[in-house]
């Protein structure tokens, strides 16, 4: 009896090994069909012609390693360009797709936001409006003034970048920025140990602990003629991006002449009086296309952020949220 049990157990194990071997062999064949070349670290699921769903490395958007811009090279901007962004406050509906696209592209945590969406109510009689706020890449940046090591710098193409190989984490720039555009890496995160991408200030990936980071206008995308991640992902076409020297801005669908857009729609810069000369222009929230409540359809945690806005307090009192 025992003998039989032993032998059947042995057979059972052998069966397992055999079928395991088959499965393994099958997988190896598939893997040989699809070999990963210079991977981006991002995986996508593709379908092969014989109906197999396989995960491969996405083709690297930045075509590294040839396109790698070192920290020294990143101090010179893209020649003959001066980048500028226009944000149409009449269309923003707090979809937050821009926030998430940026976080995905830059390996950020849920709470780390390069593009912040504020809810601003100018005064009690005013209607509040959603206010996307990236870094303004000012022409007279308060942050660059005060950096003791030159880790943050302004380029000729208007972009202000942070070189986290040089940043010593003194946080003077964070205290200096009047628009609260910068954030700090307070602790270590696993994504900082990524080995598959080389660091470039133009991609801000991978981050480093103890350094400052902020919106970078995605120069890596610009070098390939692509729009920054936030601009291309906005479903409402709120964000326009372009070159002020050629006077054109686009939101991915429509392209308009920048000077005309600003002059016809009354474009302005936020807190102009502070003299930082920002390069992000806003189109006033007149004739808003969507009611504000549409943007409140988000998680409670996000709506809690705006608890100090009088309009939200009113809605809470009325029990609408």
């Amino acid at each position: 009896m025992e003998e039989k049990n032993k032998s059947s157990r042995r057979k059972f194990l052998k069966l397992g090994l055999i079928s395991g071997a088959t499965a393994l062999a099958g997988n190896t064949i598939i893997n040989n069909l699809i070999s990963d070349q210079d991977g981006s670290g991002v995986k996508i699921k593709v379908l092969t012609p014989d109906g197999q769903m396989v995960e491969v490395d996405a083709e690297h958007l930045n075509k590294y390693p040839e396109a790698h811009i070192t920290p020294e090279e990143s101090r010179k901007g893209i020649p003959n360009r001066k980048f500028v962004m226009v944000i149409d406050l009449a269309r923003c509906n707090n979809a937050r797709v821009c926030v998430e696209a940026c976080q995905k592209a830059h390996n950020l945590d849920y709470h780390q936001e390069f593009m912040k969406i504020q809810l601003i109510q100018d005064h009690k009689q005013a209607n509040p409006y959603w206010f996307p706020k990236p870094c303004f890449h000012c022409d007279e940046p308060s942050c660059v003034k005060v950096c003791p090591t030159g880790a943050t710098f302004k380029r000729d193409d208007n972009i202000v970048l942070v070189d986290t190989t040089r940043c010593i984490g003194c946080k003077f720039c964070i205290t200096s920025c009047p628009y609260s555009a910068r954030i700090f890496n307070w602790g270590h995160r696993e994504v900082y140990d990524r080995k598959d991408v080389k660091y470039s200030p133009e991609t801000s990936v991978p981050g480093t602990e103890g350094t400052v980071l902020k919106c970078d206008f995605c120069p890596d995308m610009l070098r390939q003629g692509e729009l920054p991640h936030c601009v291309r992902s906005c479903p409402m076409g709120v964000l326009y991006f372009g070159d002020i020297l050629e006077d054109l801005v686009t939101n991915g669908e429509e392209t308009v002449q920048f000077s005309k857009l600003i002059n016809e729609r009354g474009g302005y810069r936020y807190l102009e009086r502070l003299g930082a000369e920002p390069n992000v222009y806003y189109l006033p929230p007149v004739e808003k296309q969507f009611p504000l409540e549409g943007g409140l359809d988000k998680e409670d945690e996000i709506i809690e952020r705006y608890k100090n806005v009088p309009y939200i307090q009113e809605l809470k009192k009325q029990g609408k949220i």
């Binding site: 005060v146 950096c147 030159g150 940043c167 010593i168 003077f172 700090f184 602990e209 103890g210 350094t211």
Partner: peptide, 26 residues
């Protein structure tokens, strides 16, 4: 203690920017 990257303190002396009040303070 307040500096995020103590391993890079020498950058203050290698790449100083004299427009910065911190450099003046040092």
């Amino acid at each position: 203690l307040c500096i995020g990257r103590l391993d890079r303190l020498h950058y203050l002396f290698l790449y100083p920017r004299i427009q910065s009040p911190i450099t003046w303070d040092i």
